[in-house]
Nucleic acid binder design. Structure first.
Length: 858
RNA sequence: GCGAGAGUGGCGGAAUGGCAGACGCGCCGGACUUAGGAUCCGGUGGGCAACCGUGAGGGUUCAAAUCCCUCCUCUCGCACCA
C-alpha cells in the first residue's frame, strides 16, 4: 500500500525503453511536434537547473504526444569548452577523458529522471561526426565572404603564454592562475563571421517571433542588435586624408567643436608622434586600455581625454577643430571616432567644460533660448536649428535629412544605419574545440582545407599540459602539413572555434543525426523544422539565441534550412535558487553540513541563513539531484520543480516543499490503491447522470478543462498541479458508499482514469503504475489526452459580488444564464446592500456580466 | 553604467482591471494509534471591532497586486563561461 517510488520508477523506465515509446520515427502520418531543451554542457553531474529545464521540456513533450503529435524530443551534449581544459589543468585529466566520463555519468542521471528522450539521436559535439559539418559550413562562409580575418585585442597572460577568457581575468586585472601577473592586451589576427550582414533581418524577424517568444527576450535582442539611424561624415585632415565619424545627430554638425577618438585608434598615436606628444599620449592610452570596458562605458565614469596633437576640419563651418583621445569612445562601435557636439550631448558637454573647449548651441528648444556660456548641461531634445548656415530655422528632424542630403551631394557623407551588434569573433586559442579548417602557407597565405580532406580531426591523444599554451601548437605531426595549393611545407591553424559555433546548429542536426553523406537532409528538414517549442535559460537571450538564428538564416540561404526562424516558440525558464548557509568559522555550508537545529556539524556553531540565491557550488547552496531521486524518486523531483513556481520565474528550492510533493504523490497512490477493487469492478463508461454522479463528473471535467488550459495555453504548470491536487482532495471526501454504488462508481472510475492521465506528463512513473493497477490496457503515456465535456464543465451557478462605493458589501448567487435586469434587481434588493444605500441617491451602477455589480451612491 | 526582470501572509506562490491570499509548506486543533516525525479530518493575513492590508510615495478609474509617474531593494545579461 505504501508508495515506493524507486522500485516502481525503474520498472517503468525499463518498460518504456523496451517498447521504444519515445523513439521518434520519420515516417508517421501524425502532425509533427519538435520539442527541444537547450542541451547541457557536460560539466560533471546534473544540477537542479538541468532538472528544471528538462522537466519542463518533458512535460510539454509528453503532453503533445498524448495530444496526438509525433514528438521529436532529442538530447545531446555541448561537449567542447573551457571547463574541460580547466579540469585538465587542475587534476591532470585529459579534456577528452573528462568530457566522455561526464557524459556517461550525466546520461545515467537523465535516464533516472525518466525524461522521454529519443536516445537514438544523442550526439556529442566534440566528435568529428558532428563537427566535420561545421568545418564545411565555415569553408562555405569563407567562400561567401561571410568569414574574414581581422586583428582584435585579447587578454594575454605572459606567465601562461596564452590568451585568457574574460572569466579567467580577476577583477583587479590579474590572471586567474597567476594572481601576481597583470593581464595585458595583445593584438592577434582572428576569424570573424559577418553576422552584421544579417542584422536588419535578425531584427525584423522579431515580427515573426512575436507571440511565441517572451516579449522581454525580444526587447533584449533588439537592444543588443541596437539599430540606429544617422550618417557617416568625413572630416578632412589639413594635411590631406580624412577621418570618418558616425553620428545619429547630423543636425548638430555645425556645433561640432572637437573630435573624440577611441584610445585604441591607430591614428591617435600617429597624431601624437607628429606633434611630439607621444610620451603623454602613450601614458594615457596605456592607462585607459587597461580599464574595464564595462566601467568605461558607464555614465558615471569620469570623462577623461588627452589632446592628440592632431586637427581636422568641420566640413560645414570650415573651422579646424582639435582631435582628442577619450576614454568613453569605443573602438568597436561605429568608426571609433565621434564628432563632439558639447551643446547637445551630455558626455561631450562634460568633456568640453573639463578641458575648456568651446560650446556652440545649434538646436534651440521651443520654450527657452540656449546660451552656450550659461548652459549647465547639454540639451539633447528636439528644436529649431540655429547658427547652421542655410539650415537655420529648420526643425531639427528635417535638418537631419537635409544635412545628410547635402553631405551626400557633396560626397563627404552618407546616410547610414549603424548597429551596436558586432561581427562575431569565432577564433579561440584553445585546445578543446573544433579545429578551424585552414592552413597557413608561406607562399600562398591562408589556404582553406579542401572539402574532401575534412574533417580536420582534433588529435585527442596529445599529452595535455597547460605549460605552453595551446598543445595543438606543439603537436608537430598534426600541425605540419603540405600546402594544399602549392605542396610546400605549411602549418595548420591551431585556433579552434568558439563553442557557440556548435550550439548554433545542433537543433538542425538532431533531425538527421547519423547522416554521414551530408550535414542535413533537406526533405527531413522540411518535415521537422522549425522547433515548435524551445526551452532554456534567460541567460542565453542574446548570444546563443542570436547566433543560432543567424546560422539558420545563413543555412537557409545555402538551401539547407527552410523558413526564416528556427524556434517558433521560446520558453525561458528562471533560475533555481536556495537559501545560503554560512558558518562563522567554516564559511559557506552545504545543506548536509548543517544539523536539524541549524548548527554547523563541524564546530556546532549556529549557521547564518542568508537570502535565497542562484544555486552554485561556490556558495554551497546546492541540492544534488541524485540524492533527491534516491530519497523521493524522480516523480517527486519533477513534480516539485513544476509546482514550486511558474516556469519563467525563479524557483526557490525548499526541502519541505519537496516533502509536500512527495506526500501528494503518496496521497494519489493510496487513494487509488485503497479503492482498487471498487475501481476495477466499476463500469468503464460513465453515464450522463444526475445527483452525486453528475457532481463527480462535473468536478472531473472542470478540472480537466482547467489543467488542459493551464498546460496548453498559459504554460502555468504550478496552477495545473494545484487543480489536480484539489481534485484529489475532493475524491478523498467522496463517501465510501459512492465508490460502491454502480452509477457513482462509474463516475469515479472515469474521474480516476482522467486523474492519472492528467498526472502522467507530470509524474509519469506513478501514473503508469496506477494505470496498470486499475486494469487499464496499454501505457498511460500512450493514451490520448482526454477531452473535457463542455456541458459538464460549464458552471451552473455564478457568484456575483456587489460593491458599494468601491467596497465589497454583498455576494449574490444566481443561475448561470441570469440576465442583467434580474441581477440588478436582486442586488438592489439585498438587505446588506439596502443597509448602505438607504436614503442615498444612486449615482452610478456598473455591471460586469456574471461577476460584479458596482454601485456608487452619494 | 546600459539593457531586461522581480518585489503579495511565517514561507513558495494564486488572482493580469472586478471577492487579495487558490494550491502547497509551516503552524494550531481533532481523529486513529502501544507509539507517531505515518495517515485521515478541520482551522489558519492583521485587528475586539469599524476597518486595515500586495516594496515606498503619488496618479488614472465606479473598481488597481494588476495601468501611468517618481523612488527604493534585489536578480540576470553585457560579446573569450556555457
Amino acid at each position: 500500500m505504501k508508495y515506493k517510488a524507486q522500485a516502481l520508477e525503474g520498472k517503468w523506465q525499463k518498460e518504456w525503453d523496451e517498447a521504444g515509446v519515445f523513439r521518434c520515427l520519420d515516417e508517421v502520418s501524425a502532425p509533427k511536434y519538435y520539442c527541444l531543451e537547450m542541451f547541457p554542457y557536460p560539466s560533471g553531474r546534473i544540477h537542479m537547473g538541468h532538472v528544471r529545464v528538462y522537466t519542463i521540456g518533458d512535460l510539454i513533450a509528453r503532453f503533445k504526444r498524448m495530444r496526438g503529435f509525433q514528438v521529436l524530443h532529442p538530447i545531446g551534449w555541448d561537449a567542447f569548452g573551457l571547463p574541460a581544459e580547466n579540469a585538465a589543468h587542475r587534476h591532470g585529466t585529459h579534456p577528452a577523458k573528462w568530457t566522455y566520463e561526464n557524459i556517461d555519468f550525466m546520461r545515467q542521471q537523465l535516464k533516472e529522471l525518466g525524461i522521454s528522450y529519443d536516445w537514438d539521436r544523442e550526439f556529442a559535439t566534440c566528435t568529428p561526426d558532428y563537427y566535420r559539418w561545421e568545418q564545411l559550413f565555415f569553408l562555405w562562409m569563407i567562400r561567401d565572404g561571410l568569414a574574414y580575418r581581422k586583428r582584435a585585442s585579447l587578454n594575454w597572460c605572459e606567465e601562461c603564454q596564452t590568451v585568457l577568457a574574460n572569466e579567467q581575468v580577476n577583477r583587479d586585472g590579474t590572471c586567474f592562475i597567476h594572481d601576481q601577473t597583470p593581464v595585458t592586451q595583445r593584438e592577434l589576427d582572428q576569424w570573424f563571421l559577418g553576422i552584421t550582414k544579417y542584422a536588419d533581418e535578425l531584427l525584423s524577424g522579431h515580427e515573426e517571433l512575436r507571440g511565441g517568444w517572451p516579449e522581454n527576450i525580444l526587447e533584449m535582442q533588439k537592444n543588443w542588435i541596437g539599430r540606429s539611424e544617422g550618417a557617416e561624415i568625413d572630416f578632412p585632415l589639413p594635411g590631406g586624408g580624412k577621418i570618418t565619424v558616425f553620428t545619429t545627430r547630423p543636425d548638430t554638425l555645425y556645433g561640432a567643436t572637437f573630435m573624440s577618438m577611441a584610445p585604441e585608434h591607430p591614428l591617435v598615436m600617429e597624431f601624437a608622434r607628429k606633434s611630439d606628444r607621444e610620451k603623454e599620449v602613450r601614458a594615457f592610452v596605456d592607462r585607459v586600455t587597461r580599464q574595464d570596458k564595462i566601467a568605461r562605458s558607464s555614465e558615471e565614469m569620469e570623462k577623461e581625454g588627452i589632446f592628440t596633437g592632431g586637427h581636422c576640419v568641420n566640413p560645414m563651418t570650415g573651422k579646424e577643430i582639435p582631435i582628442f583621445a577619450a576614454n568613453f569612445v569605443l573602438y568597436e562601435y561605429g568608426t571609433g571616432a565621434v564628432m563632439a557636439v558639447p551643446a547637445h550631448d551630455q558626455r561631450d558637454f562634460e568633456f568640453a567644460r573639463k578641458y575648456g573647449l568651446p560650446v556652440i548651441a545649434v538646436i534651440q528648444p521651443e520654450e527657452e533660448k540656449l546660451v552656450a556660456e550659461t548652459m549647465t548641461c547639454a540639451y539633447e531634445g528636439p528644436g529649431r536649428m540655429d547658427g547652421s548656415g542655410p539650415f537655420t530655422g529648420q526643425d531639427n528632424e528635417t535638418g537631419k535629412r537635409e544635412i545628410t542630403r547635402h553631405l551626400e551631394r557633396k560626397g563627404i557623407g552618407r546616410g547610414k544605419v549603424q548597429f551596436r551588434l558586432r561581427d562575431w569573433g569565432v577564433s579561440r586559442q584553445r585546445y578543446w574545440g573544433c579545429p578551424i579548417p585552414v592552413i597557413h602557407c608561406r607562399k600562398c597565405g591562408l589556404v582553406p582545407v579542401p572539402e574532401n580532406e575534412l574533417p580536420v580531426v582534433l588529435p585527442e591523444d596529445l599529452p595535455y599540459t597547460r605549460e605552453k599554451g595551446n598543445p595543438l601548437a606543439s603537436a608537430e605531426d598534426w600541425v605540419n602539413v603540405a600546402c594544399p595549393s602549392c605542396g610546400a611545407p605549411a602549418r595548420r591553424e591551431t585556433d579552434t572555434f568558439d563553442t557557440f559555433f556548435e550550439s548554433s546548429w545542433y537543433f538542425l542536426r538532431y533531425v538527421d543525426p547519423k547522416n554521414g553523406r551530408e550535414p542535413l537532409d533537406p526533405s527531413k528538414m522540411r518535415a521537422w523544422m522549425p522547433v515548435d517549442q524551445y526551452v532554456g535559460g534567460v541567460e542565453h537571450a542574446c548570444m546563443h539565441l542570436i547566433y543560432a538564428r543567424f546560422f539558420h538564416k545563413y543555412l537557409r540561404d545555402k538551401g539547407l534550412a527552410f523558413g526564416n526562424e528556427p524556434f517558433r516558440r521560446l520558453l525561458s525558464q528562471g533560475m533555481v535558487c536556495m537559501a545560503t548557509q554560512e558558518c562563522p568559522k567554516h564559511g559557506w555550508r552545504y545543506p548536509e553540513e548543517v544539523d536539524a537545529a541549524g548548527n554547523c556539524l563541524q564546530c556546532g556553531e549556529k549557521v547564518a541563513v542568508g537570502r535565497s540565491m542562484k544555486m552554485s557550488k561556490s556558495k554551497r547552496n546546492v541540492v544534488e539531484p541524485s540524492a533527491l531521486v534516491e530519497r523521493y524518486g524522480a516523480d517527486t523531483a519533477r513534480l516539485f520543480s513544476l509546482f514550486a513556481a511558474p516556469p519563467e520565474k525563479d524557483l526557490d528550492w525548499s526541502e519541505q516543499g519537496v516533502e509536500g510533493a512527495y506526500r501528494f504523490l503518496g496521497r494519489v497512490y493510496r487513494l487509488v490503491a485503497q479503492k482498487e477493487k471498487a475501481l476495477c469492478a466499476a463500469a468503464r463508461q460513465a453515464a450522463v447522470a444526475g445527483g452525486e454522479g453528475r457532481r463527480i463528473r462535473q468536478v472531473t471535467h472542470r478540472t480537466l478543462k482547467k489543467v488542459t488550459g493551464d498546460i496548453e495555453e498559459r504554460y502555468h504548470y504550478n496552477t495545473a498541479i494545484s487543480a489536480i491536487m484539489e481534485m484529489v482532495n475532493f475524491l478523498y471526501l467522496v463517501e465510501e458508499k459512492e465508490w460502491e454504488a454502480a452509477e457513482t462508481a462509474a463516475a469515479l472510475r472515469e474521474a480516476v482514469e482522467i486523474l492519472l492521465l492528467m498526472l502522467s506528463p507530470f509524474a509519469p512513473h506513478v501514473a503508469e503504475e496506477l494505470w496498470e493497477r486499475i486494469g487499464c490496457a496499454g501505457l498511460a503515456c500512450r493514451q490520448p489526452w482526454p477531452e473535457a465535456d463542455e456541458e459538464l464543465a460549464r458552471a451552473e451557478e455564478v457568484l456575483v459580488v456587489v460593491q458599494i462605493n468601491g467596497k465589497l458589501r454583498a455576494r449574490i448567487v444566481a443561475d448561470a444564464d441570469v440576465t442583467e435586469e434580474e441581477i440588478r434587481a436582486k442586488a438592489l434588493d439585498d438587505p446588506r446592500v439596502r443597509e448602505y444605500t438607504e436614503g442615498k441617491t444612486l449615482k452610478k451602477l456598473v455591471y460586469v456580466p456574471k461577476k460584479l455589480v458596482s454601485i456608487v451612491v452619494a
